[in-house]
């Protein structure tokens, strides 16, 4: 049997995933991470994007996270998501709207805008859309 590790994906508001996994992909700030069991202990921040989990029966599960922390122990991985909703629950329209709003804010440079937050908002909206499209493709097959 293939080696597995225990994976927990939690956000402050709810528990999202808990169970064994063969592999996990996460968008770390220093680059995307692919984690296999027996990884060295690591603590990192993750960017907005999707966390992909390969379960023992080779199924893939996607979760959108808008940033957070990732803790890795040899036998366990914990994703502390800032807001991790199931991708199917994300309102596509809301994501588009957020993107438009953010783009508008960037175009209109006269106002007092915190560009760092706006950019983060954009990155988040884009990542949300990507997660939805990926999920749609998967369901369409």
């Amino acid at each position: 049997m293939a080696m597995t590790m225990h994976v927990d994906v939690v956000s402050a508001e709810e528990e999202i995933f808990s169970g064994p996994a063969k592999m996990l992909f996460a968008p770390g700030v220093m680059g995307d991470l692919g984690i296999l069991p027996r990884h060295a202990p690591l603590l990192t921040r993750i960017k907005p994007g999707e966390v992909r989990i390969v379960t023992p029966d080779d199924e893939e599960q996607f979760y959108y996270v808008s940033g957070g922390m990732l803790e890795i122990q040899p036998e366990a991985v914990t994703v502390l998501a800032d807001t991790a909703l199931r991708a199917k629950d994300i309102d596509e329209a809301a994501a588009l709207e957020a993107k438009e709003r953010a783009e508008k804010a960037l175009a209109d440079r006269s106002g007092e805008i915190d560009y760092a937050t706006t950019e983060a908002e954009l990155a988040e909206a884009v990542a949300q859309l990507q997660a939805i499209q990926r999920l749609k493709k998967k369901l369409g097959r």
């Binding site: 770390g28 700030v29 921040r45 800032d82």
Partner: peptide
């Protein structure tokens, strides 16, 4: 004795983590 690898820097990661911890307690 062991320590984590930190990405990017221990200070930043710890600040983020501890901030979230406090936020989650208040939540």
């Amino acid at each position: 004795q062991w320590d984590y690898l930190y990405e990017p820097e221990a200070k930043e990661v710890l600040t983020d983590l501890l901030t979230r911890f406090v936020e989650s307690l208040v939540y």
